[in-house]
Design a protein around this nucleic acid. Structure first.
Lengths: 225, 225
DNA sequence: CAAAATTATTAAAAATTTATTAAAAATTCA
DNA sequence: TGAATTTTTAATAAATTTTTAATAATTTTG
């Protein structure tokens, strides 16, 4: 699961900070808004990367319900409402508008994190980050490589070497650098071993093997041509 | 829908009746208890079929907190606490003890029903959900594994290891990660022990054993092929 | 252009990693 | 406690990967 962003909307900065700290600790990226208007602005600007919204009900300028309604016109992003006690009568109303969950203040951080996790799990599942380098698709989580949609088998060193090359796309890498990064720092072997692997990788990549360019006297470079 | 049973614990019979009427109307089965002691007795006798408890805090003989504590020693059944206004300061304390939700009196029946529905949805609703991984069906509640409809016996470690693998479907898991997650963090043993278990699991899965892929130099990966 | 330097290719040796098997140790359960 | 089961260890076999070494091909340089 990679880079999940949560928007926290609350007028109390102390509350925002509290929630932010806990969620960041769990590895989530955070965006903040201090009122309804700001929330809509931030949401609009980052719509594509926001995975969940924590939305306070009681806020100046534009309250949570209004924000909720606006957002629901264009998005199904999961929303958790933060309600102060005594606002319960509105809850039913909220469910109809597509609120996914309520958390009433004061709440324990544990509860908050648990609910956030639960909702994200059932909405995003796993959003994996696969990169496409001109038809070479690498899935780092699954450690797989596909060329034109067909998976190819790669050994550990082959995979790591290819990964290192594509991670440094368009950058010429010296043999030394490659050895230090793909092999252990204390590797003493022949630097010819790189060639062997490059050979095999190129072969497995087929036509796209030419993306690995030989930099004579230096090393290699990955470049989509 | 399966027969869902809710235990209502409150010393006021009028209150019990009110809640009961609404919930029965929604199709739930109801059990009642008029005080803490009775609640524990009823719970013990019907533990297996009770899906949720509505628990009043203020009661003679044995108050709600004590009942909560007792029940939490043996069960994770969802519990909603009914608090009178002014008891809010105890809530944080309650969440730590495993309270799922609070509703403060007086409340609207609609709210009550909405919360009950919401909690049941996320507890029974998705928990009973068995997952099917290409013919391997896992029921986390029953801790059972079926392959092509036939149940297979699995030891603790085998089950946990398989569960960890399928929970991380399509993700390559290093031996370290596996050890840290399936075994204790302080496990010092040989990492070869993983192989032994993998061997056994694969054997038990029969043809589908090949879903557990060896990631040479890394670890293993579960992938339905 | 020829020699030198560098990389590609090939095949085989060496090293590493995993699978398998069986037995020992630990744990559970009646 | 003792039997049964589970888990771990250990040893060996098997499979795969990595490295090495030797030769060929290519590029650079004087």
């Amino acid at each position: 699961m990679k880079d999940i962003t949560i928007l926290i909307v609350d007028d109390e900065s102390r509350m925002r900070k509290l929630i932010k700290d806990f969620l960041m600790q769990k590895g989530y990226s955070i965006l903040e808004a201090a009122n309804g208007e700001e929330a809509l602005k931030v949401f609009e600007e980052n719509q594509n990367k926001i995975n969940l919204i924590l939305l306070d009900v009681m806020m100046p300028k534009l309250d949570g319900w209004s924000v909720l309604r606006q957002i629901r016109q264009s998005s199904k992003v999961p929303i958790i409402m933060l309600t102060a006690r005594g606002e319960e009568q509105d809850e039913l109303f909220g469910f109809e508008l597509g609120v996914d969950e309520y958390i009433s203040k004061p709440f324990s951080p544990k509860i908050l994190v648990a609910r956030v996790d639960a909702i994200l799990k059932r909405t995003i599942g796993d959003k994996r980050e696969m990169k496409d380098y001109g038809g070479i698709v690498i899935d780092p989580e699954g450690r797989t490589v596909k060329v034109d949609g067909k998976q190819i088998e790669m050994s550990l060193r082959e995979y790591e070497l290819l990964k290192y090359l594509v991670d440094n796309e368009n950058i010429a890498l010296s043999r030394d650098k490659i050895l230090n990064n793909v092999w252990n720092y204390d590797y003493y072997g022949d630097s010819r071993t790189i060639d062997s692997h490059i050979k095999k990788i190129r072969h497995k990549l087929g036509k796209k093997g030419k993306y690995i360019e030989t930099m004579r006297g230096v090393g290699y470079k990955f470049e989509v041509k």
